[in-house]
Amino acid sequence: MDNSLRGRTVVVTGGTRGVGAGIARAFARSGAHVVACARRPPEVPVEGVEFAPLDLRDPPAVRTFFGALPRLDVLVNNAGGAPYRPLADADPERHARVIELNLVTPLTASLAAYEHLRRARGSVVMVGSVSGSRPSPGTAAYGAAKAGLENLARSMAVEWAPEVRVNTVVVGMVRTELTHLHYGGEEGIAAVSGTVPLGRLAAPSDVGAAAVFLASDAAAYISGSSLLVHGGGERPAFLDAATVNRSVGKEE
């Protein structure tokens, strides 16, 4: 068992619910001192996780928060998200706010945390999305931001090496307390789960385990990488649409 995170200090942005809470819980179970920062406190406190109020869209507040930390070993940039909003249904300013939350705030937090991380020879884990590498209708600004986040992480990994490692967990569909709002209750969740090769949506703990791995000494030579946590991806639609007889060409 890798105990390299025991006693380390980890900050998880947006770590109060959903995927963020799963990540914070995973680091706490690894023995780390975990601080979850968000604008609002968690409705259900995560055991072993300290909460700190922080508006990540306020750069001076972000700098003050990280400057007051006695130490920092790992930063997990998890805060983000977007409502369903077709491009033509909103003005550019609304889409820009989505990009700000999902791309600019991770950069802001990383820069504010840099000196701590450099001294600790620590790491940054970005929480990306499969939306950044495929069309994302209804959440186009979010997909564009997540594509930029992966590129930012790769550039950061080069600039900040060898003192700081930077990697991305690229997340697929995750079952959280809000999943029913996206997929329509248990029947919808079951139907969507059927499109995933592993037959289920991810649990927040699946994402947490991947983030812990990338931050640990077990991944000491991994930097600038993107780890896909998506259950095998998406079954290509053409396979179900094709009418070819799949028995043709098979040997008896």
Rank of each mutant, 00 (worst) to 15 (best):
A82Y: 02
D73K: 13
V98D: 13
Y114S: 05
V98Y: 01
V98K: 07
H116P: 12
L69W: 10
N78V: 11
P83T: 07
S136C: 14
T64A: 15
S110E: 03
V98S: 04
D91K: 08
R118T: 12
S136F: 00
Y114E: 12
G67A: 11
D91P: 03
A144F: 00
A145R: 09
R85M: 14
A144V: 13
S129E: 03
D91C: 03
P59C: 04
T108C: 00
Y84D: 09
A145M: 01
G132F: 05
M126S: 11
G132D: 10
P59I: 00
L117F: 11
A90Y: 09
P83E: 07
P137N: 01
F51A: 02
D91I: 00
V127Q: 04
G48M: 04
N102C: 01
N102H: 03
F51S: 04
R57A: 13
L87I: 14
G80H: 10
A141C: 05
R97H: 08
D89F: 05
V98Q: 07
T108R: 00
A120V: 07
H116A: 09
S129V: 09
A79P: 08
G143F: 01
H116T: 11
D91Q: 10
A141L: 04
L56I: 06
F65Q: 09
A61P: 04
E93S: 11
L101A: 11
L101E: 02
S129P: 02
P137Q: 02
P135E: 11
R134N: 06
L101K: 06
N77R: 03
D91Y: 01
L107T: 02
L101C: 04
G128T: 08
